[in-house]
């Protein structure tokens, strides 16, 4: 982790960190990198690749339509709505 990677992550996560926060994040991720290096040292050549840490699988549902919630209920806590739409700050000039 260095300043350039952190700058990229800030941009991607829409964050703006203070100098103090930046130092702390860099220190945190640098430690985690060391953890990964430790894990990397383990020989996993004979270990089968797993897709999930638990031996479980999803349940699926039948393709049936049901409409449980009304728009009014869903928008009750919205800061702003208009003609059935949610309103957000303009995202396009």
């Amino acid at each position: 982790m260095d300043r350039e990677i952190l700058r990229r992550l800030e941009l991607l996560n829409q964050l703006s960190l203070t100098e103090q926060e930046k130092e702390s994040v860099i220190a945190f991720f640098s430690d985690r990198e060391k953890d990964l290096e430790t894990l990397d040292a383990i020989d996993t050549a004979d270990v089968e690749r797993m897709v999930h840490v638990m031996p479980i699988m999803t349940v699926v549902r039948e393709d049936k339509v049901s409409q449980i919630f009304s728009r009014e209920e869903l928008q009750a806590a919205a800061p702003e709505t208009d003609e059935g739409y949610w309103c957000v700050p303009k995202v396009m000039e």
């Binding site: 702003e80 208009d82 003609e83 739409y85 949610w86 309103c87 957000v88 700050p89 303009k90 995202v91 396009m92």
Partner: peptide, 10 residues
């Protein structure tokens, strides 16, 4: 984007 000038409708 074109219902109102100040917001985007979702």
């Amino acid at each position: 984007h074109d219902i109102r000038e100040d917001t985007t409708h979702v």
